[in-house]
C-alpha cells in the first residue's frame, strides 16, 4: 500500500524524519493559505467600505464602525505580507541545497581565509583600515551601543501611538454616549506596556547622551606574543565614573547544538588588566585620555576562527557609574602565532 507523504518534517537530532521536499511543500501551502485568507478578508473590507450595499451580511454587522474597518484591514494586509514573505522564503529553499546555502557561511561570521598563509586566523583587515591620530591604527568597536536605541525608539513611538489612538476612541465613545468598557479596561495593561517601552527608550537615550565615544588606538597590529604594545584610550562624555577599567582579554567561544537550538558558551581564558582607575571625571571640554603600554605574554594562543569554535582577543574599556548606567565596549584585535616576521604597515 503506497504511503501518503507527510506534509511536514521533524528534526530528530541530526536526522530529519519525513521528506524534506514534503515539508517545504507543506509550509508553502500554509503560507499560500495565509495569503488567500488575507486577500479574501481585504476584499471583504474594501467591498464593505466602498460598496456597503453589496457587502456580506456578516461583514455589515461586524464591520459596523470605522475602527473595525481599520482593524480588519491591517490584519488582512499582515496576512498577505506574511503569506508572500513566507512563500518566497520557502520556495527559495527548493532551488539550492542546504549544503550549498551553508557553504561559506560560518555560524561565527566571516573569519579566517583558507587560502592565507595563516589558515584559521582571521586577517582582520577591517580592524586596521582606519589610521589613528596618536598611534598607527584606530581600532573598530565590536558592536556600536547606539544600535539598540532605534529599536527602543520605534517600539515606544508605535506603541504609544496605538495607545493614544485607542484612548481617543474610548473618549469619543463616552462623548457620543456609546461607551466601550472592554476597550477602556484594556487601556490599562496596554498603557503599562507603553510606559515600559518609553522608559526603556529613555534609559537607552541617557546612556548614549551621557557616555560619549570611546577611541582606542594601537601602535602595531596584529599583535605578537612576547612583544610590547602602546595603546591610546580616549573617553568622551559628561559623567563621573566610579571606576574605569581597560582589559586585554582572550575569550574562547563555542557554538553547539542542543536539540534544534544553537547555544553559545564563552569563557575568558586570559585577562590582563592594563588600567584600573577609580573616580574618573569625564568632561565634554576635556576628554579623558591615557597613553598606556602592555606586554603580551609568550605561550598564548593566537586568534582562531573555526566553524563552531573561536578564540578572540579584544581590548575592553568598561566604566562603572552611578546614576548613569555602566558601559562596556570591546575592540577586537588579532594575535598571530609567535616567531613570524611582522607585517610592515605603510603607515
Amino acid at each position: 500500500m503506497p504511503r501518503f507523504p507527510k506534509p511536514w518534517t521533524k528534526k530528530r537530532g541530526k536526522r530529519q524524519s519525513g521528506y524534506a521536499l514534503g515539508g517545504i511543500a507543506g509550509e508553502a501551502v500554509f503560507y499560500a493559505s495565509l495569503f488567500f485568507v488575507g486577500v479574501f478578508a481585504l476584499s471583504t473590507v474594501l467591498i464593505a467600505w466602498f460598496v456597503p450595499e453589496r457587502a456580506l451580511n456578516v461583514s455589515s454587522q461586524t464591520l459596523s464602525s470605522s475602527l473595525s474597518y481599520w482593524v480588519f484591514g491591517v490584519l488582512s494586509i499582515a496576512l498577505i505580507l506574511s503569506g508572500v514573505g513566507g512563500l518566497l522564503y520557502r520556495l527559495s529553499a527548493i532551488s539550492t541545497s542546504h549544503e550549498r546555502r551553508l557553504s561559506g557561511q560560518s555560524i561565527l561570521g566571516p573569519g579566517a581565509d583558507a587560502e592565507s598563509k595563516l589558515p584559521s586566523i582571521p586577517q582582520g583587515r577591517m580592524l586596521t583600515d582606519s589610521p589613528g591620530e596618536r598611534l598607527t591604527y584606530r581600532l573598530a568597536m565590536q558592536k556600536p551601543e547606539n544600535s539598540g536605541i532605534f529599536g527602543a525608539a520605534l517600539l515606544a513611538l508605535l506603541w504609544s501611538t496605538v495607545w493614544f489612538v485607542l484612548l481617543a476612541v474610548v473618549v469619543s465613545g463616552f462623548f457620543y454616549n456609546r461607551p466601550r468598557y472592554i476597550l477602556t479596561f484594556l487601556l490599562i495593561p496596554l498603557g503599562g506596556i507603553a510606559y515600559w517601552a518609553f522608559r526603556s527608550f529613555i534609559v537607552q537615550l541617557r546612556r548614549i547622551a551621557g557616555i560619549g565615544a570611546t577611541i582606542v588606538e594601537i601602535g602595531d597590529h596584529p599583535l605578537m606574543p612576547g612583544e610590547s604594545y602602546r595603546v591610546y584610550i580616549c573617553q568622551m562624555g559628561r559623567l563621573r565614573l566610579r571606576r574605569m577599567k581597560i582589559i586585554l582579554c582572550c575569550e574562547e567561544q563555542t557554538f553547539y547544538r542542543q536539540g534544534t537550538d544553537v547555544r553559545v558558551e564563552k569563557h575568558e581564558a586570559f585577562t590582563q588588566v592594563i588600567l584600573n582607575q577609580r573616580d574618573v571625571v569625564l568632561d565634554p571640554q576635556a576628554p579623558w585620555e591615557q597613553q598606556l603600554s602592555f606586554d603580551l605574554p609568550e605561550n598564548i594562543m593566537h586568534s582562531f576562527v573555526g566553524s563552531h569554535n573561536a578564540i578572540r582577543w579584544k581590548i575592553i574599556v568598561s566604566g562603572e557609574s552611578r546614576p548613569w548606567p555602566s558601559f562596556c565596549r570591546s575592540f577586537p584585535v588579532i594575535v598571530h602565532p609567535p616567531g613570524l616576521p611582522p607585517n610592515r604597515s605603510p603607515r
Binding site: 606574543p225 612576547g226 582572550c250 574562547e252 575568558e268 581564558a269 586570559f270 585577562t271 590582563q272 588588566v273 592594563i274 588600567l275 584600573n276 605574554p297 609568550e298 605561550n299 598564548i300 594562543m301 593566537h302 602565532p337 609567535p338 616567531g339 613570524l340
Partner: peptide, 16 residues
C-alpha cells in the same frame, strides 16, 4: 607549536 616552542594553553588572570 610555534617556532619559539611551547604549547599554548589558557593562562591565569594577570593584573598590572
Amino acid at each position: 607549536v610555534s617556532c619559539r616552542g611551547g604549547i599554548a594553553s589558557n593562562l591565569t588572570h594577570r593584573s598590572p
